[in-house]
Design a protein around this nucleic acid. Sequence first.
DNA 1: GCAATGACGCTCT
DNA 2: CAGAGCGCCATTG
Length: 126
Amino acid sequence: MSRAATAYDRIYAVVRRVPPGKVTTYGAVARLAGLPGRARQVGYALAALRDGTSVPWHRVVNAQGKLSLVRAGSPSGITQRLRLTREDVRVDAGDRVSLARYGWKLESRSSRGDARVPTANRASRA
DNA sequence: GCAATGACGCTCT
DNA sequence: CAGAGCGCCATTG
């Protein structure tokens, strides 16, 4: 099937690169996967995933930092929220996470310490 | 092959 | 900050 399998593999590879405790957006994954502007396809690829996959799809949220999925009430939706919370990722009551704090960036060299997360760090912490 | 849908993104209100 | 509208392209019926 299809040559498209390569695109999927690309997306999965990017998602796998996401470290625990951080979340990324579909658009970012799409861009890193080589599909600029095709965030929808990323979601499609993740939707094709199955239970037991090695891809931490739960770390992928939309640009609004919200747990998209078909519905937050779905089994998968609950699983995502549960997993994120387990990784110290605070999920809002509206199934939203602060991208400003957990937003993962492809920083290959973050030796500078912490260029990202400008402010609003620390503050509350469960 | 065409029509409808969708684990989205961005802009405006 | 939240809601609604429009655009993007692949998968499915």
